[in-house]
Simulated scan of single mutants.
Amino acid sequence: MIGKHSEVGFELRELMILLSRVIDQEAAARNVDKLKGPQAWALGFIKKNDHRAIYQKDIEEELSIRKPTASRLIDRMEKNGFVKRIPSIEDKRLNQIVLTKKAEKNMNQIDDLVQTVEGRLKNGLTEEEVQTYLKITRRIKKNLENN
């Protein structure tokens, strides 16, 4: 063992805890009520894809989360007033996830939050280091998905 912890899983866990704290702090600083980390990414995804209908399955795939997790995420975003579910025109069994006026009003702060967090994550890293990190992280994800 080198250093305090040399287990990849432990370091990833610590990184996620720190990232959640930073996102919470940045959301509070921007007065974006009740916005938690995954919500910011989900809202950004919905906004970027406002040219097409977004459903829960799309959020599951984009955030690499399971159906129950996505359902709870959307429930929280709906409770917090960021999204609403409307019945799909094509398939009445599905609900389209759309941004509310509150979310639209807060999108500049949410976009700024995401950019600030990304900036903090990449601070002091070269583009090559960022690409190496992404390559390694994707390989680790693939390892976990295949087993």
Rank of each mutant, 00 (worst) to 15 (best):
E7N: 07
V8C: 12
V8Y: 10
E11M: 14
R13E: 10
R13V: 00
E14R: 08
M16T: 11
L18K: 10
V22L: 15
Q25R: 09
A27Q: 09
A27I: 09
A27V: 09
A29I: 02
A29D: 14
A29N: 15
R30Y: 00
R30P: 07
N31R: 01
V32D: 06
V32L: 12
D33E: 13
D33Y: 12
L35S: 01
L35C: 05
L35I: 09
K36S: 06
G37M: 10
G37R: 14
P38E: 04
A40H: 07
A40N: 04
W41L: 12
G44W: 10
F45I: 07
F45V: 09
K47E: 14
K48S: 11
N49T: 02
D50H: 13
H51S: 12
R52Q: 12
A53W: 01
I54F: 03
I54R: 02
Y55C: 00
Q56M: 09
K57W: 07
D58G: 03
I59Y: 04
E60T: 08
E61P: 00
E61R: 06
E62Y: 15
L63C: 07
L63F: 05
I65K: 07
K67H: 01
P68N: 04
T69H: 04
S71E: 06
S71V: 02
I74K: 03
K79D: 08
N80E: 12
N80K: 00
F82W: 07
F82N: 07
F82D: 10
K84A: 09
K84I: 11
R85V: 07
R85S: 06
I86H: 01
P87F: 07
S88G: 09
E90S: 14
E90V: 08
D91A: 03
K92D: 11
V98Y: 00
L99M: 02
L99Q: 02
L99P: 04
L99N: 03
N106Y: 05
M107I: 14
N108E: 09
Q109H: 05
D111P: 00
D112C: 10
D112W: 02
V114H: 10
V114K: 15
Q115A: 14
T116Y: 05
E118V: 08
G119I: 08
G119R: 05
G119Y: 03
R120K: 13
R120V: 04
R120I: 05
K122V: 14
K122H: 14
K122C: 13
L125Y: 11
T126N: 08
E128C: 02
E129Y: 03
Q131L: 13
Q131T: 09
Y133M: 12
Y133L: 11
L134T: 10
L134C: 05
K135T: 14
I136R: 12
R139P: 00
R139H: 13
